[in-house]
Design a protein around this nucleic acid. Structure first.
Ligand SMILES: [Zn+2]
Length: 208
DNA sequence: CGGATTTGACCTGCGC
DNA sequence: GCGCAGGTCAAATCCG
């Protein structure tokens, strides 16, 4: 065996690993782009519906079915924010993001082989209109989780989690809580906090 | 013992 | 109406 061959094999393995990581990042970014596209599509729909609604109201009274439809379609658009989170291949579908959620359901969907989990805020009697939906595993990459939040908390993240900020075994929360504390979710801005595409700091992305 | 999770049952909108 | 697909409820169970 030449040392040449061994060396070449090693370098090729290193290259393979590097490319694997690159591929991982690209998958993540693709997921982010997909989510953004969904959001843009939703906005276009909303604008269309507004136009149609105004036209119809100009023309005259229309049926309550249409009103119900429009309301049902428009309401989820109004209050929905997504976050694309990269986890470290944990099965734990239980998200610890600084708030405390209570899981109330889980269903498998038609298109996604992995189930979708539903959460509610643990402080419902404290007046907290929230609904949370979460689906994981973008069909092959089990390290990507897309969480969709609906509604906003009225309470701060008191009452519980004071996680260590160093390196907890659960991977996906510290950067998230930081973004919550800092970004504070501007109410009507399309700004997405995308962590830089540098090398490893690509963790999660807030979309709105 | 109290709260969270699990998980099948149940409900509801929607298309046929 | 019927059936499907997705969303929610609630009894049972788990876990500290
Ligand atoms: Zn809350």
């Amino acid at each position: 065996m030449d040392a040449h061959a061994c060396e070449r094999v090693e370098s090729l393995q290193a290259e393979l690993e590097r490319l694997r990581k690159v591929n991982e990042n690209l998958r993540f970014m693709l997921q982010v782009m997909h989510s953004k596209c969904n959001i843009i599509e939703a906005h276009i729909q909303e604008m269309k519906l507004q136009q149609v609604g105004s036209n119809l109201s100009q023309i005259g009274p229309y049926y309550t079915n249409d009103i119900k439809k429009i309301a049902r379609i428009e309401v989820p658009i109004a209050k929905a924010s997504q976050i694309v989170v990269r986890t470290e291949s944990k099965d734990s579908l239980v998200v610890k993001d600084g708030y405390q959620w209570r899981k109330y359901g889980q269903k498998v969907t038609k298109d996604n082989p992995s189930p979708r989990a539903y959460f509610r805020c643990s402080m419902a009697p404290t007046g907290c209109p929230v609904k949370k939906k979460k689906v994981q595993r973008c069909l092959e990459d089990n390290s990507i989780v897309v969480a969709t939040y609906e509604g906003e908390h009225t309470h701060d993240l008191n009452g519980s989690l004071r996680m260590s900020l160093s390196s907890p075994p659960i991977t996906l929360d510290l950067s998230l809580s930081g973004s919550i504390q800092e970004n504070k979710r501007p109410p009507k801005k399309n700004l997405c906090k995308t962590t830089t595409t540098n090398s490893r700091s690509l963790k999660n992305v807030w979309l709105h």
